[in-house]
Design a protein around this nucleic acid. Structure first.
Lengths: 199, 199
DNA sequence: CTTAACTCGAACATGTATGTACGAGTTTTA
DNA sequence: TAAAACTCGTACATACATGTTCGAGTTAAG
């Protein structure tokens, strides 16, 4: 969020937020992320309650449901980008992919749920713009794998990306349904995407 | 629906519905299927309007949003089962799967959207019971492929089924987004699932 | 052609979500 | 410690979805 951009109502002349205000904001964002990424149809009142904060207080910091959703998305995507910067994407593309999957498949999944559950409140363009940088990282890795002859080239690149998201999402659903354990999930993903991508 | 089960309010002594009533029901179900399988958050009022029928008339035939959803699901799943009875599942399992995909991937997709968009109105058990027969058909085909040594056995069967649904869903999204054509979709699916399943 | 089924719009009751206004009390900060 | 920022509950205005009731008009069926 680059901070300071939040559309708070009142602010001190110095531009600084008071410590208790910042605490409220943090609690709201944490609770919002938790709720929005776990199920659809979340209400502002629910977020406030889960955050242990009055509804009015929440509206003081996020003037509308939409602005709350925006803050959540920006924060989550920023976290994902940080995770990407952290992981080693050098070496064979298929092994790099495996590393990434094992490391952030659950982060990818959480973000996907979040996206799904706020998609009604945000404009597609806005959402797309924020998501693009992450998308481009994935595409870059896949393209490199294709150039190196590790990944197949007979499928559209966009489809390969979509399949990745789709299966990550599916794996999480399987865990929720009790048909897959959290330990199995990344291995199943690596195996499935491995054979799907292999040249 | 086996017909006659619909919870209509009044009915003639003979048990027969009048022709105009049946016409209304058909229009409602058609419009409902169209709407519910295309986007979430559909209201009863919208269905009525799309069907060209008064809201009160709709409630006369379907006493609640839930019962409308049930009728839609039962009708859609019945159609899917009919499609399965129609297709040739003999011969090599991978080829049978390709035939099925090419023939009913869009039907599978429509039903999945439908399910997603009524899931809030129906009990999970009820939904699961209706969907089980279809699930078992897919599982049977996959198991046969494994027994014949055509499909891999190192992945959970439930995961293979989920991957199928998941990718079908993804393919439809790609079409909506304009990144895949309706002609490409089934071929991409066959190629992707082919390499994902292959022993 | 007569009756019963059906359709319709309008209105009402209820519930829930969003966003705002008020005023009193609490916590930071300087 | 005093002023400003912040929080809180309560209450209000608005909007929208669900489901029901009423009564008058239309249509099908015997």
């Amino acid at each position: 969020m680059a901070d300071g951009k939040t559309t708070a109502s009142a602010r001190r002349p110095s531009g600084q937020r008071r410590a208790d205000a910042q605490r409220s904001i943090d609690k709201i964002l944490a609770a919002g992320l938790e709720l929005y990424s776990s199920r659809p149809g979340v209400s502002v009142a629910e977020v406030a309650e889960a955050a242990g904060v009055g509804r009015v207080t929440l509206y003081g910091h996020f003037p509308s449901r939409t602005e709350l959703a925006q803050a959540l998305i920006e924060r989550a995507f920023e976290e994902t980008e940080a995770a990407w910067r952290d992981v080693d994407t050098s070496g064979a593309a298929d092994e790099a992919l495996a590393r990434i999957l094992r490391r952030q498949w659950n982060l990818m999944e959480r973000n996907r749920n979040l996206r799904d559950n706020v998609v009604g409140d945000l404009s597609p363009q806005w959402l797309r713009e924020r998501h693009d940088p992450i998308l481009r990282r994935i595409e870059a890795l896949l393209t490199r794998g294709q150039d190196d002859g590790v990944f197949r080239t007979d499928l559209p690149l966009s489809w390969m990306v979509t399949a990745l998201y789709s299966l990550v999402h599916a794996a999480s659903d399987e865990i929720s349904a009790g048909r897959l354990t959290a330990e199995q999930a990344p291995e199943v993903l690596v195996a499935s995407l491995g054979s799907l991508y292999r040249a």
